Amino acid sequence: MIRHLVLFKLNEGVERDDPRVVKGVEAFRGLEGAIPEIRFWELGWNVSDRPIAHDFAINSAFDDADALRRYVEHPDHQAGVALWREFATWVIADYDF
């Protein structure tokens, strides 16, 4: 199994209630069940006020590297990524577990 972690940082001046952000969150919430390669899916807003913390996270899992690749290339995932590019940056980590 491969764990796929994504940590998002909203751009300066962008708030959680920004309509673009709301739409972006909804797009990623809708991926569970829509992309068959997803084996585990959770996401949510950070609750820490530490200055080094990111704002939003996705924690997901896939059977193998091919399944992760298919997820990354899936049109629904790409549509969500396009939304988030407008208002955030992110980092990822993919590891075997």
Rank of each mutant, 00 (worst) to 15 (best):
V25A: 07
E15N: 00
G24Y: 07
D63E: 15
V81A: 08
G33L: 10
F28Q: 08
L31S: 08
D63G: 14
R16L: 11
L7C: 10
A53K: 12
A57R: 00
G24C: 03
E12V: 03
R70A: 01
T89F: 09
R69G: 10
E37I: 08
L7S: 11
E12I: 02
K9N: 12
G80M: 05
S60D: 01
A67L: 04
M1D: 01
G80Y: 04
G33H: 03
A82M: 01
E73T: 09
V72F: 14
A88K: 01
P51R: 08
H54P: 05
A79S: 06
D94N: 09
A82N: 01
L10P: 02
E42S: 15
G33E: 03
R85P: 02
E86N: 02
A34P: 01
I2H: 10
V91C: 02
R29Q: 15
V21R: 04
R29Y: 14
L5D: 11
V21D: 11
V25G: 07
V91T: 10
W41C: 06
G24H: 04
R39K: 15
R39N: 14
N46Q: 14
G44E: 02
V47G: 11
L10T: 01
F8S: 02
L68D: 00
R16H: 09
I92M: 09
N59H: 12
A67Y: 00
F62Q: 04
Y95S: 05
N11K: 14
P19Y: 04
L7G: 10
V72P: 01
G24F: 08
D55S: 12
V91Y: 02
A53W: 11
A93I: 12
R29W: 13
A88W: 01
V47Q: 15
